[in-house]
Amino acid sequence: MNEQGNASTAGTPTAPLAPGTRRPGGRTARTRAAVRDAVLTGLVEHGYPGLTVEYVAEHAGIHKTTLYRRWENIEGLVADALDLAGEDSWAPPDTGSLEGDLRALAHTTAESFTTPATAAAPTAFIAAAFQSKRAAEALNAFYAGRFARCEAIVARAVARHELDRRTDAGALVRAVVSPLFLRLFITREPVDGELADRSAAAALAAARAGVFDTATAPDGTDAPAGPA
């Protein structure tokens, strides 16, 4: 990581905070949100290599000494911005059927990265993760949280007898979004509603065929084959 600015001019920086932690008696929600917004704006405008502590300080209205002391460097700022993004109230779609839920999830994912008003920030975060180990770890934690919330999709499907209760929810959800991310960030091919439908349909067929079944149910007990 190529840090901009000299941390030594701001006093001795403390150890960076791990995602999800809080410094006792430290930053307020308002300060953290202002820093998050400045980081997002900077990533969108300049990319990770062009983002500096000075830029964040100016746009957040917070002295850079405070930023160095609490976040240590740009990596810490980006990681914490992602950590804060994961504290939202997002919930997976609930359409009343497994097929509907998977299709809605695929369409939401595609639209979030192809609609100009919403695409800039998440795309910038993913780009930063390719250049910063801490940003990559924070991005991993962010999506781990998203996939964990999507366990509700499988739980509801099991309750409706649409899936075997051994179905690995994380594997199923990853199968839905993986073709989208491949095109978005690797092959740079167009992503549209038709692709979202195909991705959901393929994952659904695989789930029904038992491709994502584990040896045991989520509660750790052996589960017979077939719907619960």
Rank of each mutant, 00 (worst) to 15 (best):
P224D: 08
V158W: 01
A155M: 06
D197S: 10
P49F: 11
A215N: 03
N6M: 09
A7F: 13
L180R: 00
D101W: 01
T167K: 06
K64P: 00
A209P: 12
A117G: 15
L17R: 15
S89T: 10
G170V: 08
R160V: 06
A33Y: 02
N73A: 14
P224I: 05
A205I: 02
T31I: 05
A202N: 13
R30L: 12
G5V: 05
D88A: 11
V211Q: 13
G170D: 13
F125P: 01
V158H: 00
A104F: 01
L40N: 15
L98W: 03
G76K: 13
E75C: 02
A225C: 07
P224Q: 02
R156Q: 03
T9D: 13
R27G: 10
K64S: 14
N2A: 15
F185A: 04
L102Q: 01
S8W: 14
E75K: 05
A104E: 06
A18W: 05
A159T: 13
W90L: 11
L184M: 01
A124M: 02
T65M: 05
A169N: 02
A91M: 10
N73I: 13
Y48I: 12
R70F: 15
R208P: 07
V56K: 00
F142D: 08
G96D: 06
T123A: 13
A18N: 08
L84N: 00
M1L: 09
I126R: 07
R134Y: 11
I153H: 03
A18E: 14
K133M: 12
L43S: 07
R103E: 15
F125H: 10
G145L: 04
Q131E: 15
A206N: 13
R30W: 00
P13C: 11
P16F: 12
A128M: 09
P218Y: 09
D37R: 14
A141Y: 00
A157L: 00
A129L: 12
W90Y: 11
S8V: 14
E54P: 06
R103M: 03
S199C: 04
T109A: 04
F181L: 04
D80H: 08
A223N: 02
L40G: 13
G100C: 06
S199Y: 04
I153E: 00
Y143N: 12
R208I: 11
R160C: 08
G226H: 10
N140L: 10
L172H: 02
G76A: 05
L98R: 00
A129Y: 07
R103Y: 03
F147T: 00
T66Q: 12
A81T: 14
T12N: 07
E162S: 07
T115F: 04
G61P: 01
D88H: 09
L195W: 02
L163E: 02
D94K: 08
T52A: 14
A141K: 06
G11D: 00
S178R: 05
G42D: 09
H46A: 15
S8F: 08
L172P: 03
F185Y: 12
T52N: 04
E87N: 09
R156H: 01
E72Y: 11
R149I: 01
L139Y: 04
R36Y: 01
A18M: 02
T216L: 12
T9C: 05
A155R: 14
V53S: 01
T9F: 11
N6D: 15
A117E: 14
L184C: 02
A7P: 07
I74L: 14
E54Y: 02
A106P: 03
V191Y: 01
A127P: 03
